[in-house]
Simulated assay, not measured.
Amino acid sequence: MGETKIKWGISPIGWRNDDIPEIGAENTLQHLLSDIVVAGFQGTEIGGFFPEANILKKELQLRDLSIAGKWFSSYLIRDGLATVAASFKRQCQILQDLGASVIVVSEQTYSLQTLEQNVFDKKPEFTDEEWKTVAEGLNQLGEIAAAHDLHLVYHHHLGTGIQTGGEIDRLMDSTDPAYVHLLFDTGHLYVSDGDYLHVLNKHHKRIKHVHFKDARRQVVEDCRNKGQSFLKSFLNGMFTVPGDGCIDFKQVYDALLEHQYEGWIIIEAEQDPAIAHPLEYALIARKYINDNLVHTRN
């Protein structure tokens, strides 16, 4: 499915959500992985409910699936590098054992991601000293990741101190390109800035992982006008899979190919699985990719 240097995966977040564990709790690992096979994807990222590595390996091997990476919440400002690095090393070892390529990092100090606060209004801002702490810490974590044959990819995220295009610029300028890379997420940039191609074209050399997340324009505006939290916004349907929202993924995919991107593109859409049937939406995404991106070039 797709260009030989690009692997297509889909996130478990459409089946079960780590921030709200009760939604989709009926969806087992076996259910999730088998749906991924039915939808024709090559792999996934590790969810919070995934089992230990040896059990996971067996389930993956039975379905010829791969693990791309896993989310890691860093608290460099709150806890300091030594504390963060200890748990980071453990996660890197697990990912290395599973043959993953990236570890996804987001600085969660002051994050509004799981709080009942307006995610569109007053986002966290780091002081100059806090920026220095994050940048230096990420450089060190990036070295640890590299020692485990992984790329540290930073996830810009709504409701955090590194969300906007300008903040991504500052992060890229203040970190070592050998050790700190970028996860490019269309949905978060669209909701944050409206524009997503600028970051892709400016920082394409640093991008080592991609999330294709679509958004429903009217739902975004309704959530913004109501001052909703991140959790309520996605439960109300702010995000969806490519082909079901307003983002032009043809432009994005063409730009990635132009910049000779190599790595995973992960379909990701936080939704309530009781409303948005996970397999149905995985198939919507697969059809959109085949009809509009991949097969148009074969």
Rank of each mutant, 00 (worst) to 15 (best):
E3I: 12
W8C: 05
I10H: 04
I10P: 10
G14K: 03
W15S: 00
E22F: 11
E22H: 10
E22C: 07
L29M: 01
L29D: 01
D35W: 06
V37P: 06
F41L: 00
T44K: 00
G47W: 06
P51K: 06
I55L: 14
K57L: 14
E59R: 01
L60S: 01
L60I: 13
D64Q: 15
G69P: 12
S73L: 07
L76I: 14
I94F: 10
S101G: 10
S106G: 14
S106Q: 10
Q108V: 09
Y110V: 07
L115K: 11
N118C: 07
N118F: 09
V119Q: 10
V119F: 02
D121C: 08
P124Q: 01
P124V: 03
P124T: 01
E129F: 08
E136R: 11
G137F: 03
L141T: 09
I144V: 00
H148R: 11
H151Y: 14
L152N: 00
Y154R: 01
L158F: 13
G166C: 08
P177K: 07
A178F: 11
A178R: 15
Y179R: 10
Y179I: 11
H181L: 10
H181K: 13
D185H: 08
D195K: 08
L197N: 01
V199K: 05
I207F: 10
K213Q: 12
R217Q: 15
Q218V: 13
V219K: 12
N225V: 09
Q228R: 09
Q228T: 15
Q228H: 08
S229D: 00
S229Q: 05
K232N: 13
T240F: 07
V241A: 11
P242R: 09
G243M: 01
C246T: 15
C246D: 14
I247N: 01
I247E: 02
F249S: 00
Q251W: 06
D254E: 13
Y261V: 00
Y261Q: 07
I265P: 07
I266K: 05
E268R: 04
P273W: 09
A274N: 08
A274S: 11
L279M: 01
E280V: 06
E280D: 11
A282K: 03
L283H: 02
I284D: 05
A285G: 04
D291L: 05
R297Y: 05
R297Q: 07
N298G: 10
